[in-house]
Design a protein around this nucleic acid. Structure first.
Length: 326
DNA sequence: AACGCGGGGAG
DNA sequence: CTCCCAGCGTT
């Protein structure tokens, strides 16, 4: 590498890579070369914190060690391993991907065609698994770059261009995959959403936003919508009646019958030809954009099954657990 | 561009 | 309590 050449890493790029090599967290997928495992980690990490993803990473690989093993498995079994992790479209897409592909394409463009791989995940896998020089911009990178440039609300295009420029500046000193992960790691551990540790940041002297980090980027707030539900547990501790959920909400999983809004209990009773049901409790469950309040009732039923045999959402697990406490 | 989609942990 | 996370697909 020639000194001072355009291909040499500038101070910023070298500072971050030196920091990353010293302070990166030891994670299960660090140093991994198997593209399938790298893909799995990236999909699990979509909108999901590292600590939450790690147990699922291990148990998923234990059950589906290869892309072929995943493709051979029934979807319902894949969902059962994924249950409790949220965003179940990820599991459905991963299964669909495994069914249609025997080997992952080694380029960003090829990966981008696969179900469940958007701009971020395709770039992450292309760079980390295959060494392609494409910038991966996730929420961490968006925050780091917003602060670095003092941008309050940068467009995705602007962020991508900035990230790509930095990555290319870093090529002389580190690999694309290492650089992308370094930027994300900084956002996850130092340049955090609230109370960032600027004094420990290797980029502090390059950062235009360090004076007021909370301002870059500006937070976007959205109020969750309150929803009232009535749930009916048919059966008892030995077994319950479950039905498959269709549509976007918890689709592909199973759950107890539920109705939304006033008169929910009456509609449920009518649906199953019942006269009455016993009130067992009330619980709250929050999604990002919804605040659920669920009134739970119970009635005897003949056609029941073991709920452990079905993929259930956390919401349905909470509902059923009311039986144990009540 | 805006919205729906889970679940959990930090502060 | 609020915020938001190694985002994606649909409209």
């Amino acid at each position: 590498m020639l000194d001072g050449g355009a291909s040499a890493a500038s101070g910023l790029e070298k500072s971050l890579l030196d920091w990353y090599r010293r302070y990166q967290r030891p994670l299960p997928w660090r140093g991994e070369h198997d593209p399938y495992r790298i893909l799995l980690a990236e999909v699990l990490l979509q909108q999901t914190r590292v600590a939450q993803a790690i147990p699922y990473y291990h148990r998923f690989l234990e059950r589906f060690p290869t892309l072929e093993a995943l493709g051979r498995a029934p979807l319902e079994e894949v969902l059962r391993v994924w249950q409790g992790c949220g965003y179940y479209t990820r599991a459905r897409n991963l299964h669909r991907l495994a069914r249609q592909t025997s080997a992952l394409p080694p380029t960003y463009a090829g990966l981008r065609e696969l179900p469940g791989l958007g701009p971020y995940t395709a770039a992450a896998v292309a760079s980390i698994a295959f060494g392609e020089a494409v910038a991966a911009v996730d929420g961490n990178v968006r925050r780091v770059l917003s602060r670095l440039h003092a941008w309050e609300d940068p467009s995705p295009k602007r962020l991508q261009q900035s990230a790509q420029g930095l990555l290319e500046g870093a090529l002389g000193y580190g690999s694309p995959g290492e650089w992308n992960q370094a930027l994300m790691e900084l956002g996850a551990t130092v340049c955090t959403p609230r109370r960032p540790a600027c004094s420990r940041c290797p980029l502090e002297r390059f950062c235009r936003g360090k004076g007021q980090p909370e301002r870059y980027p500006l937070p976007k707030s959205r109020r969750p919508k309150p929803i009232e539900l009535t749930a009916l547990i048919l059966g008892g501790p030995m077994g319950v009646y479950l039905e498959p959920r269709s549509g976007g909400v918890l689709g592909g999983l199973w759950g107890v019958p539920m109705e939304e809004g006033p008169g929910g209990l009456e509609r449920l009773l009518k649906r199953f030809g019942l006269e009455e049901a016993r009130f067992v409790g009330r619980l709250r469950h929050d999604f990002t954009h919804r605040r659920l309040q669920v009134w739970v009732y119970q009635a005897p039923w003949a056609r029941v099954e073991d709920p452990r045999r079905r993929p259930l959402s956390r919401l349905d697990q909470k509902i059923l657990s009311l039986l144990d406490t009540a």
